[in-house]
């Protein structure tokens, strides 16, 4: 009887090796567009930092795209820029965004694999990647928050069954 059970466990182990590379594979094959990047919030380079901050607060986002005209991405203005280049530098919020944005940000294309986006974020410490089409027109923004959600939904039974507090166990079995 004990043998049977051990056998069962062994089968499970074999099963586990078969599915070993699932996340690794998906990171390579699934594309950024599957994550439905959020719409890009645009601001013109001559607009003020205060306007950018107001837009970011209103939309509850951590970054806005700085675009010349409708479609030319010239920079990115993020929370980190606000900290480093505005508040720490003691600049007033009335300066134009062009003065304190991140120029030529690292971008990603909708067809690129998700794994490439994760690698860029992890290595560069970026929280946002503008998603642009072949002509460089901004289509959206991919945030690290979306990546975290992607990773979490990859293991639904493990992640979504987490208790509110892992150290508290109910005294009685739950259920109807």
């Amino acid at each position: 009887m004990a043998f049977e059970r051990e056998n069962g466990l062994e089968e499970r182990a074999v099963e586990a090796t078969l599915f070993m590379a699932e996340l690794a594979r998906n990171l390579k094959t699934e594309s950024v567009s599957r994550l439905h990047p959020t719409p890009p919030w645009r601001i013109a380079p001559e607009q003020s930092v205060a306007e950018a901050v107001a837009l970011m607060r209103e939309q509850r986002v951590g970054c806005v795209l700085v675009c010349q005209g409708e479609d030319e991405l010239v920079g990115l203005f993020t929370e980190r820029d606000l900290l480093r280049r505005v508040l720490a530098a003691g600049l007033p919020l009335s300066v134009p965004v062009a003065m304190c944005m991140t120029r030529d940000p690292v971008v990603i294309h909708p067809k690129d694999p998700i794994g490439a986006a994760v690698r860029l974020m992890e290595e560069g410490g970026y929280r946002h990647l503008p998603v642009v089409d072949a002509d460089g027109r901004p289509l959206g923004v991919l945030s690290v928050k979306r990546i975290v959600h992607y990773l979490a939904e990859h293991f639904p039974s493990t992640i979504y069954n987490q208790p509110p507090d892992p150290n508290v166990v109910p005294r009685n079995p739950e259920g109807a």
């Binding site: 070993m20 590379a21 996340l23 690794a24 990171l27 794994g115 994760v118 690698r119 974020m121 992890e122 410490g125 690290v144 928050k145 990546i147 975290v148 990773l151």
Partner: peptide, 17 residues
């Protein structure tokens, strides 16, 4: 930070390939 978490998970993925 979220970056530590990403690093850990991608590191595990890399060791497979």
């Amino acid at each position: 930070s979220v970056r530590d978490m990403l690093r850990h998970m991608t590191c595990l993925c890399k060791t497979y390939s």
